[in-house]
Design a protein around this nucleic acid. Structure first.
Length: 475
DNA sequence: CGTACTCTAAATAGTTAGAGTACGGTGCACTATT
């Protein structure tokens, strides 16, 4: 079979990107595949092309509704008509329609929460699925244990679908995350394609301060002398709003973005940023997945993230076009003290575990009464089906230790005085082959490399209130 | 760790200072109400 020909005829591309062909060949041969491809390396082609060569439908498990909608829209734009997404955006009538004609779709997108619903399973049982795709598969490990436990249940669908091939796609996975993907997707003997993770055009900087106020001063100076596009990651929703306000005051086009906003507002901000109408987005870690902007020049962390994986994912949104990009982590003395308590307090506590195990009707009312938090309820309910109370307590203890290890790696990053790039690669069990010229703060950084490359040079921003007013009036 | 909110004591009937404590981030689906 000539894959290149199919690629050209179906999608109009003349050649594959690194890894795509190998991954597709293995899928077609019937083997399960885990593909670790950096963002922007054409992950979706890995299932799109097989969808045209295999009998039946491809089922794609996707973490975000907005991501699903984007993927559906993109496929439709490419002329693919038989695409659908099963999620809560469907009104009841549409849903009935879609579910009764499932077999007619080549691509079916679905959330893990929907996938485990018994009535959905029943509907899926009746059709032929040739390939199950776990998109952003690191979510299994990153969210499955303490946030969205249905991520641990994806494999329940495999016998229902008579064991289709499985493809797990992600940009960032440590050895531990990979092994958890294998375990929870019940993959046996997968082909693992692992692209070198090093993003050579991203330079790593860590700036140290004595207080949060000094960080604010630095940030103001930075954004007024460096243009966008850039993302500033804040630790809280409130801080993201504060920072955006600060930037606006300085005459800079920015907006904030976090999970507490209305869905419509979030989409609006993302679109404005994508259209180049905003130079900076100040956000929590809610922002980024499914954002495809090639020329993000700066990613700034105003607060220390809770894990290396999260940090690398967020930083990786810079410089997809291959041009130099700068990642700056702002650290003030004592910032790391917050990490552990933040992450650990979030896990279900003993009282919540006891309450759920003692309740006879499942315990949903305990959430209403404010005795058990919603996420704790979901996580404990998942384990209650599998483990005794004591075993669940032990399981949560293990997760605690895991979280402490994660924060320890983060603490090490802010203290490190050797090569940051090398350290990050080490966290993903990779080695640095050769060091780019502009590597990191500890190996020498030439900031002038980033200055002239911004979308809109900040020097063009008027700096007095008169000229700003003039600029506004002239618009 | 820093912030915001709640509680309490001292003051005397409305307010305030200080101590104590809870919270911080990521999303799906579903339901009830507009």
């Amino acid at each position: 079979m000539d894959l290149e020909k199919t690629l050209l005829n179906t999608y109009g591309f003349t050649s594959f990107r690194p890894g795509q062909k190998e991954v597709i060949e293995k899928i077609l041969s019937g083997q399960d595949v885990i593909a670790l491809l950096p963002t922007g390396m054409g992950k979706s082609m890995c299932y799109q092309l097989p969808a045209h060569l295999l009998e039946g439908s491809v089922l794609i498990v996707s973490p975000l509704l907005s991501l699903m909608q984007d993927q559906v829209a993109q496929l439709k734009k490419m002329g693919e008509k038989s695409v659908t997404a099963i999620n809560s955006f469907l009104d009841p009538q549409e849903r009935t329609n879609v579910l009764n004609n499932l077999g007619s779709y080549r691509f079916i997108f679905i959330s893990p929460e929907m996938l485990v619903q018994p009535y959905i399973k029943k509907k899926l049982q009746g059709i032929h699925i040739s390939l199950l795709v776990a998109d952003e598969a690191h979510c299994i490990s990153q969210w499955g244990f303490d946030f969205r436990p249905d991520y641990l249940r994806i494999a329940e669908i495999l016998p229902v679908l008579k064991h289709p091939r499985v493809l797990a796609l992600t940009a960032t996975a440590t050895a531990k995350v990979t092994s958890e993907i294998i375990k929870y997707l019940e993959i046996v003997d997968p082909f693992i394609y692992s692209h070198p993770m090093d993003r050579r055009n991203i330079a790593y900087d860590i700036q140290k301060f004595n207080s949060g106020n000094e960080k604010l001063k630095w940030l103001t100076r930075f954004v007024t002398t460096n243009g966008g596009a850039g993302i500033i990651y804040a630790g809280t929703r409130k801080k993201s709003q504060e920072l955006s306000g600060l930037l606006n005051q300085a005459g800079i086009r920015s907006a904030y973005y976090h999970g507490g906003m209305e869905h419509q507002d979030r989409i609006f901000v993302q679109q404005q940023f994508q259209n180049g109408e905003l130079d900076w987005v100040c956000s929590t870690n809610a922002f980024g997945m499914g954002v495809h902007i090639p020329d993000i020049r700066h990613v700034i962390h105003f607060q220390v993230p809770t894990s290396i994986e999260g940090y690398v994912q967020e930083v990786g949104r810079a410089g997809r076009d291959g041009s130099p990009a700068l990642a700056t982590l702002l650290y003030a003395t004592g910032d790391e003290e917050l990490l552990e308590s933040l992450v650990l307090d979030d896990l279900p506590n003993r009282n919540e575990i006891r309450e759920i195990y003692q309740s006879e009707n499942g315990g949903a009312q305990l959430v209403e009464q404010g005795i058990v938090r919603e996420t704790s309820f979901k996580v404990i309910s998942y384990w209650k089906n599998l483990l005794t109370e004591k075993e669940t307590i032990r399981q949560i203890e293990r997760q605690k230790i895991e979280k402490i290890l994660q924060t320890a790696k983060m603490k090490k990053l802010v203290k490190i005085d050797s090569c940051i790039r090398e350290y990050l690669l080490e966290c993903f069990d990779q080695h640095l082959e050769n060091r780019p010229v502009n590597c990191c703060i500890n190996e020498g950084l030439d900031y002038s490399d980033f200055l002239g490359r911004s979308k809109q040079s900040a020097l063009a921003v008027p700096d007095t209130w008169e000229s700003r007013l003039n600029a506004i009036l002239l618009c």
